[in-house]
């Protein structure tokens, strides 16, 4: 049996050894964990970047890129919403001018893309229709200002001279995807109708659109 002094020395020696062992273990864990954490972070960054590129690789949602749009399934006619890209492959134009019907179908995907780009650009560039400006203030306030509203020759700067009144031609421009989804724009006079609203285009824009669609 050891004496107390020996035991005390042994206790301190063993205690120091345990402390050293623990430190060694801790540093070993840190040495293993730091590179592991770095690897995880780097992998995460790579995956996130590649995920971002996956979406960016596809056609972007800008109007300039043509038919790179999606159509919400519940509203097939709704103008493009940026989510999954949709490629239009068919264009159908039905137009009628004073009993002179016109029908045109384009199935060349590139042409359809270009035309979709033109139409959607015109729609986007068009100014939003102000109904009160178009129909007059009196229409909305129950004729209270009838006396003032007698002057029908008043010039309204936001409404083109022919808006909604003079040109009787109505053109239905329908773009279809391969799986049957479609977006329809209606061109009448200086107005473009789509599912989400009505836009006014100027004469120059209208002429450009008619030329592109072969309706001029």
């Amino acid at each position: 049996m050891r004496n107390l002094e020996e035991c005390r020395a042994e206790i301190f020696r063993l205690g120091e050894e345990k402390i050293k062992t623990r430190r060694r273990k801790r540093s070993r864990i840190i040495a293993a964990c730091v590179p592991l954490c770095l690897c995880v972070i780097v992998c995460a960054v790579i995956v996130l970047n590649s995920g971002g590129q996956l979406y960016n690789d596809g056609p972007s949602c800008s109007v300039d890129d043509g038919p790179s749009f999606s159509v919400q399934e519940s509203y097939p006619d709704k103008p493009p919403v940026c989510s999954t890209p949709v490629k239009y492959v068919e264009l159908e134009i039905i137009s009628g001018t004073n009993g002179n019907p016109f029908y045109k179908k384009i199935t060349d995907a590139d042409d359809v893309s270009a035309l979709f780009s033109t139409v959607s650009e015109s729609y986007t560039n068009g100014s939003e229709l102000n109904f009160s400006a178009l129909l007059g203030e009196n229409y909305f306030n129950g004729g209270a200002n009838d006396n003032k509203g007698d002057n029908h020759d008043e010039v309204r700067p936001d409404v083109p001279p022919s808006a909604g009144t003079t040109d009787s031609r109505v053109s239905f421009i329908t773009f279809r995807t391969a799986d049957g989804q479609e977006v329809t724009y209606t061109l009448s006079s200086n107005l473009i109708y789509a599912k989400d609203g009505i836009r006014i285009i100027n004469n120059e824009e209208k002429q450009k659109l008619l030329n592109a669609l072969g309706l001029s």
Partner: peptide, 15 residues
Amino acid sequence: AEDIAIDVFSDLISN
């Protein structure tokens, strides 16, 4: 028993 006791006491130092 002595070794065990030494081990126990050394725990007081290390931990």
